[in-house]
Simulated scan of single mutants.
Amino acid sequence: MDDLLAELSALESELHHPGVTCTRERLERLLHADFHEVGRSGTRYTRQTVIDFLADHPSPPRVVAYDHRIERLADGVALLHFASHGIAGDGTRHSAALRMSVWRRTALGWQLSYHQGTPAAS
């Protein structure tokens, strides 16, 4: 289970950590064909919207993710829980959230199928 937690945490980090640029091709491989998201704001996003946004922003906002834990839902399906917050240019924290991502093991490897963020206290 620790290996799976490390693997999925690393894959998740490709989508939001500074200094890691995901190409459009890599995003298409990471995000399952059925991917969709409900963001921290409550806004729904499609796979294509997320790919376009991330591919067009080579310097993603600074995000710190922590308190990762994993829950197996079925064979080849796992739920990654974690918390996050953004870091402003002056170093202050903002946009704290509790997050969950459903990952599916496919012929292409682990792919993100669903993500949700919920506002949290800072």
Rank of each mutant, 00 (worst) to 15 (best):
A83P: 02
P119R: 10
F53Q: 14
H81F: 12
W110K: 11
L15G: 05
A55K: 04
G86S: 08
D3S: 07
L108M: 03
E12H: 15
L31A: 05
G19M: 06
H16L: 03
S101N: 09
R93I: 04
D2S: 09
T118E: 06
F53H: 11
H68E: 12
T21M: 11
Q48E: 15
D34R: 07
H32Q: 12
A6Q: 10
R69D: 15
A88H: 09
A88M: 02
R69I: 03
V64Q: 04
E37G: 04
V102C: 13
A121D: 11
R104M: 05
L80D: 02
R69N: 07
G19I: 05
R99T: 00
L79G: 08
G109L: 02
Q48S: 15
P18Q: 12
A6F: 03
R72H: 08
L108G: 08
H16R: 09
T49D: 13
H85A: 05
A10L: 09
R62E: 15
L54Y: 03
H17G: 04
A121R: 12
R105Q: 15
L15I: 02
G86R: 15
W103Q: 13
C22V: 01
A96S: 14
H36F: 01
H115Q: 13
V20G: 03
V64G: 01
A55F: 02
V50Q: 12
G42D: 13
T21H: 15
P61F: 02
S101R: 07
E71C: 04
F35T: 04
S59V: 13
L80P: 08
L4M: 13
A97W: 01
A78M: 03
G91I: 07
A121P: 01
L108Y: 07
V77A: 15
T106R: 07
E71Q: 13
I70F: 05
E28F: 01
S13D: 04
H32Y: 12
P60K: 11
V20H: 11
M100P: 00
L15V: 00
L8Q: 07
P119I: 01
D2Y: 04
Q111F: 01
I51F: 02
T49R: 13
A78C: 15
I87S: 08
S41N: 10
I51C: 09
E37L: 02
D34M: 00
I87Y: 03
G109A: 08
V20W: 03
G86V: 01
T118K: 10
L31M: 07
W110D: 15
G91P: 03
R40W: 02
R26V: 00
R40N: 11
R24M: 07
L15K: 01
F35K: 14
V77P: 10
L112S: 10
E12P: 15
Y114F: 06
H17N: 09
A6C: 06
W103A: 12
D34Q: 06
E25R: 12
L73P: 10
R69G: 14
A107Y: 01
C22T: 01
E28S: 03
L15F: 02
A88D: 12
T92Q: 14
S59K: 12
W103F: 08
E25L: 10
A65C: 12
L108K: 09
C22A: 14
F35D: 13
G86C: 11
